[in-house]
Deep mutational scan, measured.
Amino acid sequence: MALNTPQITPTKKITVRAIGEELPRGDYQRCPQCDMLFSLPEINSHQSAYCPRCQAKIRDGRDWSLTRLAAMAFTMLLLMPFAWGEPLLHIWLLGIRIDANVMQGIWQMTKQGDAITGSMVFFCVIGAPLILVTSIAYLWFGNRLGMNLRPVLLMLERLKEWVMLDIYLVGIGVASIKVQDYAHIQAGVGLFSFVALVILTTVTLSHLNVEELWERFYPQRPATRRDEKLRVCLGCHFTGYPDQRGRCPRCHIPLRLRRRHSLQKCWAALLASIVLLLPANLLPISIIYLNGGRQEDTILSGIMSLASSNIAVAGIVFIASILVPFTKVIVMFTLLLSIHFKCQQGLRTRILLLRMVTWIGRWSMLDLFVISLTMSLINRDQILAFTMGPAAFYFGAAVILTILAVEWLDSRLLWDAHESGNARFDD
Score class of each variant (00 low, 15 high):
Ser65Tyr: 08
Val195Asp: 01
Asp427Thr: 15
Arg59Lys: 13
Leu66Gly: 13
Ile330Trp: 12
Ala392Arg: 00
Ala100Met: 02
Leu77Tyr: 04
Ala128Gly: 03
Ile172Cys: 09
Val179Asn: 02
Met80Val: 09
Gly26Cys: 14
Ile126Gly: 06
Asn4Thr: 09
Phe122Thr: 13
Val203Gly: 14
Val125Trp: 01
Leu208Met: 14
Ser411Gln: 12
Gln295Asp: 05
Thr117Ser: 05
Thr327Asn: 13
Pro219Glu: 07
Gln104Lys: 07
Val125Phe: 09
Gly246Val: 07
Leu283Asp: 05
Cys51Phe: 08
Gly292Gln: 05
Gln180Asn: 14
Ser176Phe: 07
Thr349Glu: 09
Ser305Asn: 06
Gly85Arg: 14
Pro325Glu: 00
Val170Met: 12
Glu419Asn: 09
Gly421Ala: 08
Asp114Glu: 13
His184Ala: 12
Thr110Asp: 13
Gly142Pro: 01
Thr402Met: 02
Val317Ala: 09
Lys328Glu: 00
Trp92Val: 05
His46Thr: 12
Ser135Gln: 02
Ser45His: 12
Thr374Lys: 00
Pro242Tyr: 10
Lys160His: 06
Val133Phe: 03
Phe194His: 10
Tyr28Arg: 14
Trp84Arg: 15
Val357Pro: 04
Lys178Arg: 03
Thr15Ile: 11
Ile288Gln: 00
Arg144Trp: 13
Asp27Gly: 12
Phe122Tyr: 15
Val170His: 08
Ala272Trp: 02
Cys236Val: 00
Met304Pro: 05
Cys124Lys: 02
Arg226Gly: 09
Met1Ser: 00
Pro129Glu: 06
Met72Arg: 01
Leu79Asp: 03
Ala2Val: 07
Ile14Glu: 13
Arg225Thr: 10
Asp367Lys: 00
Gly361Ser: 06
Trp359Phe: 05
Arg231Gln: 08
Asp297Pro: 01
Val324Gly: 09
His207Ser: 15
Ser273Cys: 12
Asn281Cys: 15
Ser39Cys: 13
Val313Gly: 02
Arg150His: 04
Tyr241Asn: 08
Gly421Val: 09
Val331Ser: 15
Gly113Glu: 07
Asn148Trp: 03
Leu277Glu: 02
Phe141Gln: 01
Ile316Asp: 02
Phe217Arg: 13
Leu66Asn: 12
Val102Ala: 11
Ile303Thr: 12
Ser45Asp: 10
Gly190Asp: 02
Arg221His: 07
Val324Ala: 08
Thr9Tyr: 10
Arg350His: 13
Ala423Gln: 15
Cys266Asn: 05
Pro129Tyr: 03
Thr15Asp: 13
Val195Cys: 10
Trp359Asn: 10
Cys343Gln: 12
Cys54Glu: 00
Arg250Phe: 02
Thr374Asn: 15
Ile14His: 12
Leu404Asp: 06
Ser273Val: 07
Gly346Tyr: 12
Ile378His: 00
Met1Pro: 00
Ser206His: 15
Ala314His: 04
Phe238Val: 06
Leu93Met: 04
Glu419Arg: 10
Arg245Thr: 06
Cys266Arg: 00
Gln55Ala: 13
Pro254Lys: 02
Arg348Leu: 08
Arg144Asn: 06
Ile19Pro: 11
Lys229Val: 08
Pro151Gly: 02
Thr134Lys: 07
Ile351His: 11
Leu282Pro: 04
Leu270Asp: 06
Val399Leu: 05
Gly95Val: 00
Val331Ala: 11
Ile285Cys: 04
Phe326Leu: 12
Gly127Met: 01
Phe425Met: 12
Phe123Tyr: 06
Asp27Ala: 13
Val329Ser: 09
Pro284Glu: 04
Leu414Met: 11
Glu157Leu: 14
Ser119Trp: 01
Ala100Tyr: 02
Leu3Ala: 15
Trp214Ala: 15
Tyr168Val: 06
Leu77His: 06
Arg97Gln: 04
Cys248Met: 00
His261Met: 08
Arg245Ala: 05
Ile383Tyr: 05
Phe333His: 08
Arg362Tyr: 02
